[in-house]
Every structure is written in C-alpha cells, then in structure tokens.
Computed example of a mutant assay.
Amino acid sequence: MKYRFINHTADIAFEVYGSSLAELLKNAALAFYDAFVDLSRIGESKEVEIEVEGEDDEMVLYRWLNELLYLFDTQFFAAKEIKAEVRERGRIEAIGKLRGGNLTPEMVKVEPKAITMHKFGIERSLEGFKAFVVVDI
C-alpha cells in the first residue's frame, strides 16, 4: 500500500508509506495529487524539478509537501509521475522530478490551503516509513 485516506471532519488526512524516505516522498506526492485533482484529466507535457532540504525526515516531508502546494497554487501544476531521490550530506536533501500538466478549475476536486503540523509525523520501523499528514482545505 502506498497511501490511504483517513476520515477527518474538516480537512484531508492521509497516511503514506514507503520502504525508504525517497519512496515515502514519492507516495506522499501521489496522495496529495490524488486528494485534490482528477488525475485522469492531467496531461504529461510538463516536467518540474523540486529540491528541498531539512535537518530531519519530518522537515523534509513537510517542505516537500509545501513545495507541491506552492506549484499547485502558483503554477496550477499537478503531477502524475513522481521520481524522488534523497541524499544525506549533514542535512537531508530531496530532489524530485514531477511529470504532469497544468490544471484547469474543473480538474480540481477541492482546493488545498495549507499543510498542517496537526498530528504530522513520521514513524520508522523495520518495514520502512509511515507518515501522517493533514491538509487544511
């Protein structure tokens, strides 16, 4: 399982899974776009690269999701294909290549406002990573 949506009273919440931090970031992007966009209507003509860094896994995931939200809000961009790479050089760096296209209003299911810190976190286990994310709508 890559991700699953959690019932939440006023926001969108999901758990996301990955065997590595890179896979967790990829699956978080898939969950984000699946929650807010009719992906069957998105083209694949545009590629966008993103880079974020942080002192720990949680900060990297938080910044990663905020970068997706920024692209959604300012460039009306949503991705169907996501590649993520993680490097550790004192700080954790994440590089993403997103392939997708521009949004039109009828493609948007509901509009995200903010990535929240409410119950936000990552758990590590022998199986890999699990994160919980709530997005304000």
Rank of each mutant, 00 (worst) to 15 (best):
K2H: 14
Y3M: 06
R4K: 15
F5G: 09
F5D: 07
N7F: 09
T9A: 14
T9D: 08
T9R: 08
A13G: 10
A13S: 10
E15Y: 09
V16G: 00
G18S: 01
S19A: 14
L21H: 02
L21N: 01
E23Q: 14
L24E: 00
K26D: 00
L30T: 05
L30N: 05
D34T: 15
D38T: 09
D38F: 12
D38P: 04
L39R: 13
S40L: 00
I42W: 11
G43D: 13
E44F: 05
S45D: 15
K46N: 07
E47Q: 11
E47L: 07
E49N: 14
I50Q: 02
V52I: 05
E53F: 12
G54L: 04
E55A: 12
V60A: 06
L61C: 06
Y62L: 12
R63P: 02
R63H: 10
L65K: 00
L69S: 01
L69E: 03
L71P: 10
F72N: 03
Q75N: 13
F76Q: 10
A78I: 09
I82W: 04
I82E: 02
K83G: 09
A84I: 03
E85A: 06
E85S: 09
R87Q: 13
R87G: 07
R89A: 15
R91H: 11
I92W: 11
K97E: 04
R99H: 03
T104P: 01
P105I: 04
V108Q: 04
V110A: 12
P112S: 03
K113L: 13
A114C: 12
I115G: 01
T116I: 13
H118G: 05
K119Y: 14
F120Q: 10
F120I: 11
G121Y: 07
I122H: 07
S125R: 15
G128R: 14
G128V: 08
G128H: 14
F129I: 02
V134P: 10
V135I: 15
V135N: 00
I137E: 02
